[in-house]
Design a binder for these strands. Structure first.
Lengths: 225, 225
DNA sequence: CATGAAGTGGAGCGCCTATTCCACATAGCG
DNA sequence: CGCTATGTGGAATAGGCGCTCCACTTCATG
């Protein structure tokens, strides 16, 4: 399962170059973090993650000095999957179908992973790799939207920022209903997609600017006191 | 501004029957709670509320033994305003216009008050008065929806539960964008309302059941570990 | 205006975080 | 095999929270 061929010593982000046992521990931590973040969200206790991983807190903290470091390592894969979902949508011969399928898919990902739902609605300026992938995804997304508009099925006033809006709205529904009504979000997304169809388009207030949305995404994980 | 005429001694929920100074302190606490909850949400620190009110923690805790008690006292007025907004919507000669205006108004209330946004997306079984008013509101809401459907403008498959869904979605947008893009929620609500129009109606997945939504509303303020 | 009831605030407790530090263990090279 | 850089875990620290307890203050009544 290890995808890195070279194992020369160097502090590469991925953790290559660690002593074999340290490398093993690192992976156990990330694995534990995946579970715990998925269940409890990004503000889960570091202690619990260490406990679940079967390592001391010090070990966790040494490998991931800040929470953001751990988050970045934990969700790198999923952010990649997110980004690939856009590529797949772009490959769909029917751009509108691709667009709708993408929206549903990413909302499903939010529903499945509480931590990931948060990751999608914030940025982590310190986590370079994560943000790079996100930028890549953002560009592909712009293209996807453009295609869907050109096909005539997506309303022309749909804005890139609206996608972030969907994710935030979906996150709200998902966090509230995860236990009691795990499919409730489908209803919301169903409504939204219908209103994105060009046929249904009625005048709308302007979207928030991109700059505004970007700033909205930088709020801290646990909203500040 | 005091709306209670009698001041006989009795432990009435409102706090009538307290010694004059105690009554004064009680009001300062509620006032402080209003501000702090609005800014920081329902899981704000009790200490901070006491500090802001200029009273000791003990005083706060004696008057409001549980957080829910304080929440109930703090938001009683706003829940009443919410319930009255439905009545006003019902009084609108154009039921569809009344319905839309109501949705926008309550979402605006969420945008204005972070604590209230939470109050609308949970129930407080212990806070009888609050819940009674909510039940009253729920009934009026059913009626409003029925009128709007009868007028032919609201799609027939719109469910009572969808309103809660809107509030949850809006809460998600509002908590994420409050600082950076305070009007972003209008865009979401704009989309949603368009999809509620009968003309635009396309088949939709079933809504969550009422029982499901009710259970979703009972989750704890700070989602449990 | 005196007195007892009512009300007060802060110190203290227990529990939970995150973060630092250091004596000890071990992988893996020579 | 033996030695050392590398890595480890838990104790210790510091700070936050809700909540309790009690010596003190203040109200308002006769």
């Amino acid at each position: 399962m290890t995808k890195d061929g070279d194992d020369n010593r160097a502090s590469v982000p991925g953790g290559r170059g660690l002593r074999a046992d340290a490398q093993r521990n690192r992976e156990r931590v990330v694995e534990a973090a995946r579970e715990v973040f998925a269940q409890h969200g990004l503000d889960a206790s570091m202690n619990e993650i260490a406990r679940r991983a079967g390592v001391g807190i010090a070990t966790l903290l040494r490998r991931f000095p800040t929470r953001d470091d751990l988050i970045a390592a934990t969700f790198a894969e999923k952010v990649r999957a997110y980004s690939e979902a856009i590529d797949e949508a772009l490959a769909d011969p029917d751009p509108w179908h691709g667009f709708c399928a993408f929206i549903e898919r990413v909302c499903q990902m939010q529903a499945d992973d509480r931590g990931f739902a948060d990751v999608l609605t914030m940025t982590f300026p310190t986590a370079k790799a994560l943000e790079a992938e996100r930028d890549r995804a953002a560009n592909a997304l712009t293209e996807l939207i453009e295609h869907a508009k050109t096909s005539g099925r997506l309303r022309r006033d749909f804005a890139h920022q609206d996608v972030a809006l969907i994710l935030m709205a979906n996150a709200g529904v998902v966090t509230a209903t995860r236990d009691a009504a795990p499919d409730a979000w489908r209803r919301l997304v169903g409504y939204l997609i219908q209103s994105f169809a060009a046929e249904a388009a009625q005048p709308l207030v302007d979207p928030p600017t991109r700059a505004q949305m970007y700033r909205a995404l930088i709020r801290l994980p646990q909203t500040p006191r």
